[in-house]
Amino acid sequence: MNKKKCICHLGPGEQSPGGMLSVIKSFLKNPFLKEYEQIHIATVSPTRKITTFLKGSLKLLYLLITKKVSLVYIHMSEGGSCYRTMVFINLCKLFSTPVVVHSHGSEIEVWYSNINKFLKTKFNNAMNKANAIVVLTPGWVCFWKQIVRNTKKIHVIPNYVYHRDYQTRTYLSNGYLNILFLGYIGERKGTYDLIKATKILVDSGIPVKIHIGGNGEIEKCNQLIEKLHLIEYANVYGWINKEKKEKLLNICDILVLPSKYESFGIVLLEAMNHQLPVICGSNGYSKEIIEDGHTGVVAPSEDAEKLAEILKNMYDEERLKNMGDKGYKHVEQNYIEEVVSCSIRNLLELLIN
């Protein structure tokens, strides 16, 4: 029996919960990739950053020296993650090991525009040594074309969710429009714009409740809710586990992610997969994964009044159901594990075999 070829994922570890770690875990347990042995080396942590990086680098070096790894798959965001990725790429190339860079960072464009010419050159050189760059939506290709000379190396592969059977569900069941926010609580994700929009809705007599789940600026969020006299209309849960997330996706009517900037927005897929209409911000690339007016609505980023107007129009059971059903079908056709895994497998086979 031939030994399985090994793919080594580099990225955040268990101490850094979030989107990238979720993607890594989805790769590791993907049944459509079972012909490969997949391992994960943590290369960054929120506290022992240097120690984690050095330990991770030594583990990778051992795998490269002993030829126990066939491909290195680097999950990259922005800032320090880009510098670590440059080191890992150059290390892998010393041993002629194929490298994939999976770009997750929502703010990598801002980071890249702010670094000096010397660092841009170093970064560009490293990225051109990679065998493939994976981006999440077609819009990201434009950014990477200015960096990668051989544009055939750029592959659009979105994040995915798991198939979920269609469920018969009701909307506005308690008379309220239950709005769900999932993500990092703070300015960049548009949390405070959503709270201000909720204030406008309450003042105009729309029965509404907001449910906010995520880590981040929890105290500041609660302070704004108290200041706007919204305590009876808002629930702030902090970081929530899988079971709590599932419960919220089942009891809420709509998910809102009004980010100032977003690289993808996996929670939008999770919501549509639960037949929830979604609202996303106009800045960034999350708008590319919904069909405006059909599976969700694209709202102008940083505009609480416009967001409130859109939400007011969503207080309609039939509209919520129609949009939720269309979103579910959209995800089933384009973003479930089985569909996206075909693209992943094709890329891995191309580079390894």
Score class of each variant (00 low, 15 high):
Lys312Met: 13
Glu226Asp: 15
Glu217Cys: 13
Asn215Val: 01
Ala271Ile: 04
Gly265His: 00
Leu311Thr: 09
Ala299Cys: 15
Thr295Trp: 03
Ile290Gly: 02
Glu318His: 15
Gly296Glu: 09
Ser259Gly: 02
Leu224Gln: 08
His274Glu: 13
Lys242Ile: 10
His229Tyr: 13
Tyr285Val: 12
His211Val: 10
Ala304Thr: 10
Lys312Asp: 06
Ala271Val: 00
Leu257Glu: 04
Glu232Met: 07
Ile290Gln: 12
Asn215Gln: 11
His229Leu: 11
Ile310Gly: 06
Leu255Asn: 14
Leu228Arg: 04
Tyr237Thr: 10
Ile231Pro: 04
Ile225Ala: 03
Lys260Ser: 14
Asn235Lys: 12
Phe264Pro: 11
Lys220Met: 10
Leu307Val: 14
Lys247Asn: 11
Val298Lys: 06
Phe264Ala: 05
Lys321His: 10
Gly296Phe: 08
Glu217Tyr: 11
Leu320Ser: 10
Tyr285Pro: 05
Lys242His: 14
Pro277Lys: 08
Leu255Trp: 08
Glu219Asn: 10
Asn241Tyr: 06
Val236Asn: 04
Asn273Trp: 10
His294Gln: 14
Asn313Gln: 15
Glu309Asp: 13
Ile210Ser: 07
Leu228Ala: 01
Leu311Arg: 02
Gly293Pro: 10
Phe264Val: 00
Leu320Trp: 00
Leu276Met: 03
Ala299Gly: 12
Ile218Tyr: 09
Ala234Cys: 15
Cys221Phe: 10
Ile266Ala: 03
Glu288Arg: 09
Gly213Arg: 03
Ser263Lys: 08
Val298Asp: 07
Leu307Ala: 01
Gly284Trp: 03
Asn283Cys: 12
Tyr315Ala: 05
Asp303Tyr: 02
Ser282Trp: 04
Asn215Gly: 15
Asn235Phe: 13
Cys221Gly: 11
Lys227Leu: 15
Tyr315Glu: 07
Gly238Ile: 00
Met272Tyr: 02
Glu288Gly: 13
Lys220Tyr: 12
Leu320Arg: 01
Leu224Cys: 03
Lys312Val: 01
Pro258Asp: 06
Val298Trp: 04
Leu320Met: 07
Gly214Ala: 06
Lys245Arg: 08
Leu320Asn: 00
Glu219Met: 04
His211Phe: 15
Phe264Lys: 03
Glu246Ile: 06
Gly281Asn: 09
Glu309Gly: 09
Leu255Pro: 07
Lys242Ala: 12
Cys252Leu: 03
Val256His: 11
Val256Lys: 02
Lys220Leu: 14
Ile210His: 07
Ser286Tyr: 09
Ile279Gln: 07
Glu262Pro: 08
Lys242Glu: 15
Ile310Trp: 02
Leu268Pro: 04
Gly216Asn: 10
Ile310Leu: 14
Gly216Arg: 06
Ser301Ala: 11
Leu257Asn: 03
Leu230Gly: 07
Lys306His: 15
Glu219Ser: 13
Val256Glu: 03
Pro258Cys: 03
Asn235Cys: 11
Ile289Asp: 01
Lys321Phe: 15
Trp239Pro: 08
Asp316Ile: 08
Ala234Tyr: 07
Ile212Pro: 02
Leu320Ile: 00
Trp239Tyr: 14
Glu270Gly: 13
Ile254Lys: 01
Gly238Cys: 10
Ile290Pro: 01
